[in-house]
Amino acid sequence: MSVSSVASPACWNCGAPPGGGHFCIGCGKIQPLAAADGYFAFFGLPEKLDLDAADLDRRYLALSWKLHPDNFVRAEEFERNLSLDRSSVLNDAYRVLRDPVSRAEYLLARHGVRKEGQTKQQAPPELLEEVFELNESLEELRAARLSGDAAESAALGKRLEAAGRNFQAKLAEVDAELAAAFREWDAALDRSAGEDERARLMARMNEILNRRSYIRNLVAGVTHELDGAPDA
């Protein structure tokens, strides 16, 4: 089943109408990639976010086997290249869709909601304050380590551990929020919700992802600092 409504050209080999799949519905020959096809369509999936990882794995394995260049060693160069193209997209698509965060980021980018480094995205002020304070603590800890002040280091280390736990908890909270937003998005697709509602849901997911990226950086920063501690 294909979810892509964009017309692909007829089969290059037999002229059969496009079926939207990897292979022609008429002669079974491998087809060129259609530019509009996305990663979800590549796996024959609707653009739903709460996807079943085991199902994705199965689809990935089945497709890697079917599209593998080894199957095309005796085919024309044209077909061999199509197999290479599709195999390489398969791997990209799998890598992106397998991870919930990159999956959502991909969906939002595809719908123009998220553009790296272009759209201005503000974080909530209270989070910024918190981020700032934590960064200051991290900096103090580094300075204390450099100056070899063991007592100060230990005290700061304790504070950081607490902060780390706090941010870990926050990360779990955000992930739960994201999972809930995924289910809402899928439900909206199921009842063919209008553009407005989809846009609203995507905007909210974008906001959650922004908060997540901040918190993830903080968790990474704290972990890095604590791991780097000689005797923390």
């Binding site: 790296e116 480094g117 995205q121 503000q122 974080a123 002020p125 910024l128 304050e129 981020v131 700032f132 960064n135 922004n210 908060r211 990226s213 901040y214 950086n217 903080l218």
Partner: peptide, 13 residues
């Protein structure tokens, strides 16, 4: 003024 770029994790005061 406290601002931040969530994408790269920068924060600026």
């Amino acid at each position: 003024g406290m601002v931040g770029a969530p994408e790269c994790g920068d924060v600026m005061r």
